[in-house]
Design a protein around this nucleic acid. Structure first.
Length: 751
RNA sequence: GCCGCUGUGGUGGAAUUGGUAGACACGUUGGACUUAAAAUCCAAUGGGCCUUAAAAGCCCGUACCGGUUCGAGUCCGGUCAGCGGUACCA
């Protein structure tokens, strides 16, 4: 599973360490935004690619958001195609390529190797040597950022050699270019410029032949890459012809032929790369590995765990080695098995290592004989619900699945997957902001101007009371001839300099941007939960966060929304307690609730229970509010009903619920009580309301006693008799009667 | 470019999965209480039409265009916008 390899890694000189691909964003380090260059170094790798297929397949069984599963599928990037071997014209060498379009083989007019491809050196001719070496040197120096910049402009050099296209015997030139990646497929491609956009651009630039082998597009304008409605042409030799076949059939026919001839075979390739697992930092789990006679060797179990040495400084050594390399009395040790001198591995594991198995260790933190005891693992695993941010979609969540599968294979865990159900909580944004933009001359901009304007902008924050929404857009209130605004500088700082905005100054169509932003210090829209707790209490904060909307959804913060749930909590208090005396209200009485009270309670129990199970906390809270609005009207509030309500409230507002539970004379704690159950029979209404439609439009409403509610004849008769409905039926021919029990009646008429 | 998700009042969001769109909350307006304010309570609140007024009624309305259906926020096809992911992956 673990091996060492010389890989071109993302070396960040500023941080003095190597970064994983996922930690590099647009050629800069995710942390700090420093430049990153590619540099070959000896690194530890974990063979996650060996699990690619299982990581892909087992996604099906998981109760995860579709978007996360899709991201993992894309990341794993499975593609099915064929490996095809091309012989060289002058030598016995072979170039193996991977293609998903073997049906276009007759259209391969040149080949491209990645600059790092091992064959490049062998096949480069003397005349081309200088150009090739130069190109390789430059490609090696390029950072990821540079490569991205050059995307639109293809570069490459001819090696001087030719390969033979096995289907038609044509000699085709072999080039090197950095648009072919050494790390994907075989590091070499057959270029089919007629049917691959990248090859087409390259062929255009270097004047290579473009041949049409699939009919359906215009290859003089762009590559024709659709595979749904293409038909093979110009694709035959003495033994095989693909002409006239649709793409799928052509692929099968040629693959079979290549197989028979020993020229190639069906192959599956993944985008997923092996996991670069070492870091040159002090903080990180040390590898349980020593180097004896220059070879790595795992330490025996009784020498574990390897702990980090005490040090004065944590800074990187700067040479690319970990700071641990400078601590000689730790680094130099002896092999416990042979007694030979040994050197400790100085790389450490990345941050993800711990997050790949902490959920197992947390189950059994004191266990000494392994990561987790069998017994506890079987009791607790898999994790029933994992709530986390979407930013972990392909990092932590893929790595942890990988480790878990390895642990499953060696018998440490009993489940194939660690996290059965996963929910992504949505981010909470700052409050809604209204912004108007001003150019460097102080002119306010319209939407069109803003789109094209490139100079320095000043953001002016307007407050909600100055804005009206008419139709699709927001505009300034007409009475705001002049209004004070808060000036936000380009650096994000907010100075409360008073500016005066003259409404008619810049003309109509002013652009007012209305949206909320991710909370950030620089924008100054951060809500500190401590302040909210201070002012409204922890219950109100908790309740508000759940009331804002669906758990998974991104939603803006609103201070007046907090105010709203805070008012609700105060209402709950006053439903039970006399605010003056702090004693129970006289309305709170012993005795049986009436039918209406029972119905209100049981409706709340049903809704709240179902909504908690389905993570619909917002609608559950609204059910509690509906109950309280109802109960506040009661002269007598039976104790039993109040008790059950407090139980329903307790997961949402535990502090308040505990207090009221005690005030109602109950034994603590409210959290150790059994959850109330609802009784369906208490929910039944005395009568049923039917909406009556005529031709699909509601024209009236009738009430029928519950005992008659499913009586079709009776309901229809009453429906037709309803005064307004009758108006619409008059003089018309009734062609159809729709009766949906307990829902609706629809009468279809003609004429 | 490609993949995924989301578009509902002034705002956050509901809608039993095809059955009265806008629950609940915020905000706004009016009223009560108060010397006043806060707090609290009551009422109204998608847009429009008809009517002296009220009651009732009618039309339009879930991003846009079209379709299926007795009936569409919900299903299907297309378009647009926003958000997230990803990008020379052969």
């Amino acid at each position: 599973m673990a091996y060492q390899a010389d890989v071109a890694v993302n070396w960040c000189p500023e941080l003095g360490t190597v970064l994983a691909n996922e930690e590099v964003i647009d050629g800069k380090s995710e942390v700090g935004g420093f430049p990153v260059v590619r540099k070959p170094m000896k690194q530890w790798m974990l063979k996650i690619t060996a699990y690619a297929e299982r990581l892909l397949q087992d996604l099906e069984e998981l109760d995860w958001p579709e978007s996360i599963k899709e991201m993992q599928r894309n990341w794993i990037g499975k593609s099915v195609g064929a490996n095809v071997r091309f012989g060289m014209q002058e030598t016995d060498d072979e170039i193996s390529v991977f293609t998903t379009r073997p049906d276009t083989l007759f259209g391969a007019t040149y080949m491209v190797l990645a600059p790092e491809h091992p064959l490049v050196d062998r096949i480069t001719t003397a005349e081309q040597r200088k150009a090739v070496d130069l190109y390789i040197g430059e490609a090696g120096k390029k950072s990821d950022l540079d490569r991205t910049d050059l995307n639109k402009n293809k570069t490459g050099v001819f090696t001087g050699s030719y390969a033979i296209n096995p289907v038609n015997g044509n000699a085709i030139p072999v080039w090197i270019a950095d648009y072919v990646l050494i790390s994907y497929g075989t590091g070499a491609i057959m270029a089919v410029p007629g049917h691959d956009q990248r090859d087409w651009e390259f062929a255009r630039k270097f004047d290579l032949p473009i041949v049409e082998v699939v009919k359906g597009g215009d290859i003089t304008k762009e590559a024709f890459t659709e595979s749904e409605n293409g038909i093979s042409v110009n694709s035959s030799n003495d033994e095989i012809s693909l002409d006239g076949l649709p793409v799928d059939e052509a692929k099968e026919r040629i693959s079979a032929w290549l197989g028979e001839k020993g020229l190639g075979e069906k192959t599956v390739t993944y985008k997923l790369r092996d996991w670069l697992f070492s870091r040159q930092r002090y903080w990180g789990e040390p590898f349980p590995v020593i180097h004896v006679d220059g070879k790595p060797k795992p330490l025996p179990e009784d020498s574990l765990p390897v702990t980090l040495p005490e040090v004065e400084k944590y800074e990187p050594s700067g040479t690319g080695e970990s700071p641990l390399a400078t601590i000689t009395d730790w680094v130099n040790t002896t092999d416990p098995e042979t007694g030979k001198p040994a050197r400790r591995e100085t790389n450490t594991m990345p941050q993800w290592a711990g997050s790949c198995w902490y959920y197992l260790r947390f189950i059994d933190p004191e266990y000494k004989n392994g990561p987790v005891s069998k017994e506890k693992e079987q009791y607790w695993m898999p994790v029933d619900l994992y709530v986390g941010g979407a930013e972990h979609a392909v990092l932590h969540l893929l790595y942890a699945r990988f480790w878990h599968k390895v642990l499953y294979d060696i018998g440490v865990v009993s489940t194939k997957e660690p996290f059965q159900k996963l929910v992504n909580q949505g981010m909470i944004l700052g409050e809604m902001e209204f912004t108007i933009y001003k150019d460097e001359n102080g002119r306010y901009l319209t939407q069109k101007e803003l789109e094209t304007y490139e100079g320095p902008l000043t953001r002016l924050k307007l407050s909600g009371e100055h804005i009206t929404k008419d139709g699709e857009r927001y505009s300034l209130n007409p009475e705001q001839a002049h209004l004070p605004v808060i000036v936000a500088g380009p650096d994000g700082s907010k100075t409360t300099v008073k500016d005066y905005f003259a409404k008619d100054e810049p003309g109509e169509d002013l652009y007012i941007e209305a949206r909320s932003f991710k909370m950030s210090k620089s924008r100054g829209n951060v809500i500190n939960p401590d302040d909210v707790v201070e002012r409204y209490g922890a219950d109100a904060l908790r309740l508000y966060e759940m009331f804002m909307g669906p758990l998974e959804q991104v939603k803006p913060w609103s201070m007046s929304g907090v105010e709203g749930v805070y008012r609700f909590l105060k209402r709950v208090w006053r439903m039970i307690i006399d605010d003056e005396t702090g004693k129970l209200l006289p309305e709170i009485v012993q005795g049986e609730p009436n039918a209406g009270q029972e119905k209100a309670l049981h409706e709340a129990i049903k809704k709240v229970t179902g909504d908690i199970e389905g993570f619909r906390f917002n609608t559950g809270i609204s059910a509690l509010m509906i109950f309280v609005n109802e109960a506040m009207k009661w002269d007598k509030r039976p104790l039993s009903v109040m008790n059950d309500f407090i139980l329903l409230l307790s997961p949402y507002a535990p502090h308040l619920a505990e207090e009221l539970w005690a005030k109602l004379g109950n034994e603590p704690s409210v959290s150790s009580q059994t959850w109330p159950e609802y009784d369906e029979s208490k929910l039944v209404d005395e009568s049923q309301t039917y909406a009556i439609q005529v031709n699909g439009k509601v024209r009236g409403e009738i009430q029928v006693p519950m005992s008659d509610a499913k009586n079709k004849e009776l309901v229809l008769t009453e429906a037709k008799a309803e005064a307004n409905v009758a108006r619409y039926l008059e003089g018309k021919q009734l062609v159809k009667e729709i009766f949906v029990p307990l829902r609706i009646v629809n009468l279809v008429v003609k004429g």
